[in-house]
Design a protein around this nucleic acid. Sequence first.
DNA 1: ATGGTAGCCGCGCTA
Length: 261
Amino acid sequence: MKIAAWNVNSLKVRLPQLLEWLAARRPDVVCLQETKLEDHNFPRQEIAAAGYHAVFSGQKTYNGVALLARETPADVVVGNPYFPDPQKRLIAATVRGIRIVCAYIPNGQAVGSEKYGYKLAWLDALNRWMGEQLAANPHPPDNPQLVLAGDFNIAPEDRDVHDPAAWAGQILCSAPERGAFQSLLGLGLKDSFRLFEQPEKSFSWWDYRMLGFQKNRGLRIDHILLSGPLAARCTAAGIDRDMRKHERPSDHAPVIAELAD
DNA sequence: ATGGTAGCCGCGCTA
């Protein structure tokens, strides 16, 4: 079972790339962020023609998440019950007995800003909800089947940052943000990427500006976290870096984790 | 060097 997450930065613009990529990679589940589409504009026909069911929660201009799956997603929940939020950043559904949570965690703009406070509060509520979801999705009991995937807007460690000195204490890298990430791991979730040997300087996002990608000035901020039993089944994890080379790319590359059946 | 690039129904804001 192949699970992917991709911040597409406008599904309208990236739809042709998404369809090509779905055909090439054949993921079973895809968590999309920054669709930037109202629900009535979601390209349901094109996604269905590609062989995927879709559930989504979008808004105009900003944010927006979607969950694509080759099997019908069940028990769809939009948003975090512990954090009422007009911003469309969270959608969850069950696919093949696995609870999938697709998240677009706030960027936070700058440490100390109002948006930063919102990000930390959002993460605190996410942590609370994930704790509950881990307990609520046992199969059988005490065997949580949970995936938390998406754009976290957090580089967990210095090795996830092209220039740790320049980014020290900055947004995406600050201690409170990294602490929130560690709290999610503390619930028993595993960073699928780090279950395997990986190339140095592996990143998932590069700023459009200043030739960020060409110079590999990136950060690894997109993640697929797995509950313990799923981590035990994980056979591979990686970043589809080549998608960032595409003409008119998203600023994020897709991340992928594979589970043995 | 406080820039730069991309996407948005936008004519600034967010990333």
